[in-house]
Nucleic acid binder design. Structure first.
Lengths: 377, 377
DNA sequence: ACCCTGCCCTGGATCGATCCAACATGGTAT
DNA sequence: ATACCATGTTGGATCGATCCAGGGCAGGGT
């Protein structure tokens, strides 16, 4: 079946050299080669050179599986990815994943992807259970709700740790991982538990929204509307608070200027229409580029031009923001920095399992494009 | 006993149960447990049930490292990802990666990401090379040019196979992998070598462009321009040929109606401006959504409305196409099918290393949105 | 000449699952 | 009653790198 040994057929790549091969060629013992690889400073210079020569000559690289087995570490980091949301402009994950792959690579780690799919992935063990009652009975550690996928990887020691990114949607994975004492770091602060003991990195959404709002105020706008997410979204409320802060600071009114909706283009469009009719704003700050595109739709229908007639600012600096005419001004999260901080925390955590780092809060930047419009004064 | 070596620290997760633990609990030998997991039909029903009960009770899952070491397979598939291209609308990879993770999971594989970074990733072995001449001398199998990253993973037996996606940019990885006899499947046909022996899956770009062009013709357009990629892009020329085919079929002229540029918004914008001035098309078919957004820019500058005044069709059905007003009609690649076919080929390849599957060609679909405009007749 | 220290190096055991060949068990043919 | 077979089960060896305890050797002190 799937796991059959691969007998070396004629057309097959030759097996990679092993530590023993290198040792024989260099005329030393295995341990010496191992030291040359892992603790070069333990060897005399000439021995080291000889071993390295042999390593180069054979193109030797340690067998991952053997090393993993012995050291009880896989040097793999698990990352659960969300399904791509069709019809939205959310491109954050894409950039983040890339940054994470790059950064963790420099630290000697690779990223292993998995999804929240319900079907048991590696269900060799759970194959045909004869008596369903038995399965239910013994299933004391079943992967519940949001922890889908994490469990298998952890139990099979496939990964050393996890990077959790969906802390803002809901927190079951975090709670589950914490309870399991599984090593993980989070992109996203622990909203519901301010003194959570796991390392996390987040971007200050309030600062981002404030940046956006202040930018518009400085252009001369005074009637600036907010379109954000529903009240049960911590991130949404956080970003909204930045808008409120900026407005209050300049003594501008926020009453009737805010709308909280689903994160879809259609919702943004409807919200923009209502706001334009009732509050008559000259500018919009949105919790996402998706919502901002909703505003674009409404403006488009009414023959208004983003930028020239009504200013619009989005959030996340998606590809949409970068390419749509006349360019959508947007708040950009420094995902590269996030990845760097996460990996740093990860290394600390794996070195000292009890590590409790301080949460790291990063500040986003504003990318100004045409939709900001001209200065009004 | 065996586990005594590592004194369990207070705050540490308890080590997962092993095969031996299960065997002891179930009162059978290790091999019997192994059989229960891998060849359940070899056991008597009652024994199987007893073992499975023990497995459930302990929450046992085979240790990956040990299994990998013994079976010489990691059940990991390597995927090299490209840096996100800022300022473009290319969102294909995002969807593809997700589809691939999902599909390969069902086949018992996980996806391992890596990048084309130049720095040696896992350079334990290559640490401080004393004599640079030595390194160069022995470096007979150095990872050259486009194969960066593949080499380490292969030599360290970290992955079983690769999925290669960048065959259209240039082919060094493919040539390198083939020469190495490394197992891989490609998303993208082998343009330069029609009788390449590796499994591949691709999407018929010509058919996609033809679909788009025909759609516009049926709306009543006769002057349909093409904005594509430079002539050295196989994919670009392939897509272009679909436009030519559709035009010729209806006896429509293509002279002066085509432009070949870089894949950037700015290029698309310039190309659209020139074409509008000289060839006066009423519709554009573009090789990418990025270029289509360039057309949008030009229309926007001239006070023209996509859809109502000039029809535009893009390629890849990016998030931009889905969210920009009034919606950009676009050709969508069936990446989910691509992933499914790739995984199918991968399984065949890993089961029979000499497997040479037929290339699989899939047909894209057209997603019609506002930018198609109304019927002209 | 002796011992001791420090530096390298060595062989054997180990991680956990699987492969292998041999063995137990119950039932059937001789 | 003995030989035989099929079905299940068993302990030992194995994959390749690392951990561990012990051993060889040169140089310095007495």
């Amino acid at each position: 079946m799937s796991r059959m040994a691969h007998p070396r057929l004629p057309g097959q790549p030759k097996p990679p050299p092993t530590l023993a091969d290198v040792a024989e060629l260099a005329g030393v013992s295995r341990q010496t080669v191992s030291n040359a690889v892992n603790n070069p400073d333990l060897l005399r210079a000439d021995t080291l050179a000889r071993v390295q020569q042999a390593i180069q000559q054979l193109g030797y690289l340690p067998n991952r599986a053997a090393r993993n087995l012995r050291t009880r570490a896989s040097h793999l980091i698990g990352l659960r990815i969300q399904p791509v949301q069709e019809g939205t402009a959310n491109a954050l994950m894409d950039r983040f994943v890339h940054a994470l792959v790059d950064t963790s690579r420099e630290a000697g780690y690779h990223i292993l992807l998995f999804t929240a799919d319900t079907k048991p992935a590696d269900s060799d063990a759970a194959a045909p259970v004869v008596d369903p009652a038995v399965a239910r009975l013994g299933d004391t550690v079943a992967p519940v709700d949001g922890a889908a996928g994490y469990d298998d990887l952890l139990r099979s020691t496939a990964v050393d740790a996890f990077v959790v990114t969906d802390t803002y949607v809901s927190n079951p994975p975090v709670a589950w991982l914490r309870e399991r004492r599984a090593p993980f770091v989070a992109f996203g602060r622990p909203w519901d538990d301010p003194d959570a003991r796991h390392p996390w990195v987040d971007v200050d959404g309030a600062a981002g929204a404030e940046l956006a709002t202040t930018h518009l105020i400085e252009k001369g706008h005074t009637r600036i509307a907010w379109i954000g997410w529903r009240k049960d979204s911590w991130i949404g409320e956080d970003r909204r608070s930045g808008w409120v802060r900026a407005m209050r600071e300049r003594g501008l009114s926020t009453t009737g200027m805010a709308s909280r909706v689903e994160d879809t283009v259609a919702s943004g469009r409807t919200a923009a229409a209502h706001l334009l009719d009732e509050a008559r704003p000259t500018a919009f700050v949105c919790a996402s580029d998706t919502l901002a595109m909703g505003v674009f739709h409404t403006l488009n229908e009414r023959g208004l031009r983003p930028g020239d007639d009504v200013a619009v600012v989005g959030f996340d600096d998606s590809q949409v923001a970068q390419t749509v005419p006349p360019g959508l001004t947007s708040v950009r999260q420094p995902v590269e920095q996030v990845a760097a901080e996460l990996v740093k925390a990860l290394e600390a955590l794996l070195a000292h399992p009890s590590y409790v780092g301080p949460g790291v809060m990063l500040t986003p930047t504003l990318h100004v494009r045409g939709s900001s419009g001209p200065d009004l004064r």
